[in-house]
């Protein structure tokens, strides 16, 4: 069977900053309590315009599952791995807590999990997707900002969205080749 190339396509216009994704992710993935512990977040962009004509966008974000992941390049013990379907994840037992990956990631997608005693980050909810379900943040999002799927399949919803609309990625100049793709 051909490998998958998992990706997430996001339409930020629909994001209402409700943070349901963060809550769902924390609950699904046993993310410990505490303000520094989260796998995903909603970035609030700068205000546009002058009162009373104002605008603002939100950028929901998490690990970009980079095609060229600096976190994996720098990890001394290969605790950070990329699986055959493009998912970047941490093997907790091998993590020595050097936090090099945290200084190398240009998106601040990682945090140190005191409970697993390893660095932790978004896994695209592997435990769900390989069981045929959607990632928790995708399933919960009330306005359907997030679409998850396989870019190697031309008929997947993510592939179709990227054919239909122009898209962008964050910090493209870093050369990380992110697979969190924004259609606006």
């Amino acid at each position: 069977m051909k490998n998958k190339r998992f990706a997430m396509v996001l339409d930020t216009r629909r994001c209402i900053d409700c943070k349901a994704c963060t809550v769902a992710c924390k609950a699904e993935n046993d993310v410990p309590l505490g303000p520094e512990n989260y796998r995903n977040w909603v970035g609030e962009e700068k205000l546009r315009g002058k009162y009373p004509n104002l605008g603002q966008s939100n950028t929901p974000c998490q690990c970009q599952h980079c095609g060229n992941p600096p976190c994996a390049h720098v990890c001394p013990t290969k605790a950070t791995e990329v699986n055959s379907d493009g998912i970047v994840h941490v093997v907790a037992d091998k993590c020595i807590g050097c936090k090099y990956c945290m200084t190398a990631c240009p998106y601040n997608a990682r945090y140190y999990n005191e409970e697993t005693e390893a660095v932790d980050k978004c896994t695209f909810c592997t435990q769900r997707i390989y069981a045929g379900r959607l990632p928790a943040c995708v399933e919960t999002c009330p306005t359907k900002v997030r679409v998850f799927g396989d870019l190697n399949d031309p008929n997947s919803e993510v592939s179709k969205l990227l054919t239909k609309y122009p898209s962008r990625v964050l910090k493209e100049s870093q050369g990380t080749k992110p697979y969190l793709i924004y259609i606006i």
């Binding site: 990890c75 001394p76 013990t77 290969k78 605790a79 020595i96």
Partner: peptide
């Protein structure tokens, strides 16, 4: 773990 996995699972690009 460092002692163990730097030997068992070295990453030469790190």
């Amino acid at each position: 773990r460092m002692g163990l996995y730097t030997i068992l699972s070295p990453n030469f690009s790190s």
